[in-house]
Design a protein around this nucleic acid. Structure first.
Lengths: 196, 196
DNA sequence: GCGCTTGGTGAAACATGTTCTAGAATTGCG
DNA sequence: CGCAATTCTAGAACATGTTTCACCAAGCGC
């Protein structure tokens, strides 16, 4: 990303961290980033578009984090749980920012579909990499299906958290519980049984 | 709800059906509902608050629909799938409205927590009733846990749909697939492990 | 260097969510 | 009924996302 755009996004992140979605006043963003309002609008179609760029940025940071210290666990699903724990902790550490990003993500405007889909697929890619783990064997199709379910559970829980329905612990807990329910199938069928 | 409030909400729904979130201009809502703008703001704290009231209204309609013709199926999970199919179809029939309601739901403002939580629990209650089915036996704790997972999968998929990531069919399909994966666990337990 | 194109700047203008105000209408109560 | 409290109304006013405009600056081919 170009220098000017990066500075704009960084400024938006700072403001969102402090005061959430409303605190990201585009006049403020522009002036603090040292650009004119028109420049901001040349680079980003809307406030939500800007925040989705910030989300992309955060996901990039997350990828580095996950690649440098991959989630540990003996089975794919355990690694998936570890993955979600890491991500959840990272997001909940900056609640205002996360709420703002989620809000942008859920706007539902057609022009944003591209970026929303990119977020989904990037997260799925990271999760799949965690599933594979250190042995670098590709995750099975079944593992990917399970991962898809878990991602939905996690994401929906995250939204519940941003809405104040429950706390951070509930996100991790519900995701883990879903994993256990899914794991029972494999265990009971005597396949893929690994001690922890 | 009081007559005036109801008219306001109905007007908001009409406008949202036609043009989505942005089309719900509060000046328009007020004038078309025959009230002053100040009255609208006396009844509803914000645009999102109004749309959440509309969501509550829609959920009420849905409850009547579900109570009059309950989702059919031989097992709790089959009934759950039928339930989600009904709800999904109902929502996707009015995409603009649904997108607007979901957007209001994901705003994440603390003042809205109450209504967001009410939506969640009401939907959970309806789902639980569908799980019980005609025999009126209470759903087991396990069934409720499975239902919780399914609701997350469904809701997250729905948000993907509002964001244009995938189509209506994918919502139902992903929810059904999650149910199958969970069912396998259930079956395996019933066959190979201790019966419940 | 000269003109052209692209992008940046500052400021105004506009749209809409939200708040405020002054007075009119309504309601509840004695 | 008559008064007090509440609610409603019309409209202005304000905040902020978004667009537009007039002008300027940097690069670039000639």
């Amino acid at each position: 990303m170009e220098e000017r755009s990066r500075r704009i996004v960084e400024t938006a992140v700072e403001l969102a961290e402090q005061g959430g979605f409303e605190a990201v006043r585009l006049r403020d963003v522009a002036s603090r980033a040292g650009v004119a309002l028109g420049t901001l609008y040349r680079r980003f179609r809307s406030k939500e578009d800007l925040l989705l760029a910030a989300l992309q940025q955060e996901v990039d940071d997350l990828r580095e984090r996950v690649e440098s210290r991959p989630p540990e666990g003996d089975t794919p699903l355990e690694r998936a749980i570890a993955f979600f724990r890491i991500v959840t902790r990272a997001l909940c550490r900056r609640p205002n920012l996360t709420r703002a990003l989620i809000r942008a993500l859920a706007t539902g405007e057609p022009e944003l579909t591209q970026k929303v889909a990119a977020f989904h697929s990037e997260l799925m890619r990271l999760l799949a990499a965690s599933l594979r783990g250190a042995d670098a064997r590709p995750a099975s199709a079944r593992d990917l299906e399970l991962a898809n379910v878990l991602q939905h559970v996690w994401f929906s829980s995250l939204i519940g958290w941003t809405g104040g329905v429950h706390g951070q612990a509930a996100i991790i807990e519900q995701t883990r519980r879903a994993a256990e329910l899914l794991l029972e199938a494999d265990r009971a069928r005597g396949r893929d049984l690994s001690p922890r």
